[in-house]
Design a protein around this nucleic acid. Structure first.
Lengths: 244, 244
DNA sequence: CTTCCGAACGAACGGTGTTCGTCACACGAA
DNA sequence: TTCGTGTGACGAACACCGTTCGTTCGGAAG
């Protein structure tokens, strides 16, 4: 029949001849894959992709697995750990460069851009990078080490490399969240916020918010890549004065 | 007795002579200030200061006001609006500089440092700067305009000023949140995370995370101000190549 | 075949944000 | 002064949430 490893027949399909005659066999001996940490995490990402981060609750993930919320706690300590594992899973797909002292600046740019892209593929996942204080998953650590290596390859001292990595990571996480959040919510709501802000600014003395009025049109999703590159150039450009 | 404006006597303290003799007067005619948007917001900040951001729920704030959660909705549309108003209130106390073209860089440093300091005075409040997509409160907008003005005073083009303001704001918010969050949670928990990470790193091949191992001790609360200044210098230093 | 252990699970607990219908009260009109 | 009337205050309830408890049951070990 089924391989006994990895599948499970609910309520036991076998019936003994001693069973009373009115014992009805289960209507649907549904084949259900055995739960595992990885399966729970993957299902969580599935729910996130389909219904957004807010829909990722223990109950919803359990429902997607055809079970109850209590079953998940055999594989995951808490919900925070689940979403942290989901984030780490997303980072796993990002390739890490081998430091090249001639291209370290471009390599940093590529790495951070790839991080943002990976996170934006799962709208809302960047939020958990802020919810959990310090990402500690294996892949998060690998990314941290890779960034530090690139900065060291650029000739920075240990302390400067550490501080620069901190600033670069913070900025990248912040940017990933911003873009990720915009994509996750209803676009009409974003538009409503923008209109609300415009109305407020218009109701004020015209010179009170002159620069805001003049630059408001620049903060759109279209300029996102450009803005990210600009901020990255600022940070990396600032490093030129500290190294060769 | 009391001025009728601003106070309220619960259940009506006046008794008519027609009342049946067993009618007991209310034991404590508690003087309760009338609810208002500002009072609700202020009470929210009170609860945050005393019990942390997680304790700020509609029920808890209502309880602190001696009423039920439904009463708050006459003054605040949703909980998100409440915490957004709380954040805006915190920003109100930060003074804004008048742009001086000779000191614009230092003025930016001062402004952003003051923003971080104000947020860290209310541990956890920086989190809401991320929960609400685009801060839209009057004070948030005033801060945005001030930052743009300083950058324009520095000679940047409109587009560059806008992009630089975006990067600077993002970095400041990110840093404020990081420090704010560390202060808001149990220090033993932070230590546990650090130890957990150290153990994981030790269990790996020693050269796999060499830079992480060497720099781990630099990411403490003591180096926070230094790290923030470093990142700010990076961003502002990157601007030198784009203006005089 | 029996024992045993841990995954799976149903039900419940105490919390959350928000809504609904009601009620008391201050204020303007008669 | 009396009488509506509108609005803030409020208790109760709804539909969720994360998590825990006690039980059940499948599959491997003895």
């Amino acid at each position: 029949m089924f391989p006994t490893n990895g599948v499970r027949v609910k309520y036991g399909v076998r019936m003994s001849s001693q069973d009373p005659p009115w014992r009805t066999p289960p209507a649907k001996p549904v084949v259900k894959p055995r739960l595992s940490r990885e399966l729970v995490v993957r299902t969580g990402l599935d729910v996130l992709l389909r219904e957004g981060l807010d829909a990722v609750s223990m109950r919803r993930v359990a429902q997607a697995l055809g079970t109850g919320p209590a079953s998940l706690y055999a594989h995951v300590a808490t919900k925070d750990e689940l979403v942290e594992l989901m984030l780490d899973q997303v980072l796993e797909e990002v390739p890490l460069p081998a430091p090249d002292p001639d291209r370290w600046r471009d390599q940093i740019r590529e790495l951070l851009r790839a991080q943002v892209a990976a996170m934006q593929a799962y709208p809302g996942i960047a939020k958990v990078a802020w919810q959990v204080m310090i990402p500690i998953g294996p892949n998060a650590l690998r990314h941290g080490e890779a960034l530090l290596s690139l900065l060291r390859a650029g000739g920075l001292s240990l302390t400067h490399a550490a501080y620069a990595a901190d600033a670069l990571s913070l900025y990248t996480k912040a940017f990933a969240y911003e873009g990720s959040a915009w994509r996750a919510v209803d676009p009409t709501e974003v538009a409503a916020r923008g209109r609300q802000m415009g109305e407020y600014l218009d109701s004020m003395p015209p010179d009170a918010f002159a620069n805001m009025q003049a630059t408001g049109h620049l903060f759109t999703a279209e300029t996102a890549a450009e803005r990210f590159a600009f901020g990255l150039d600022l940070l990396l450009g600032g490093l030129t004065s500290r190294t060769g």
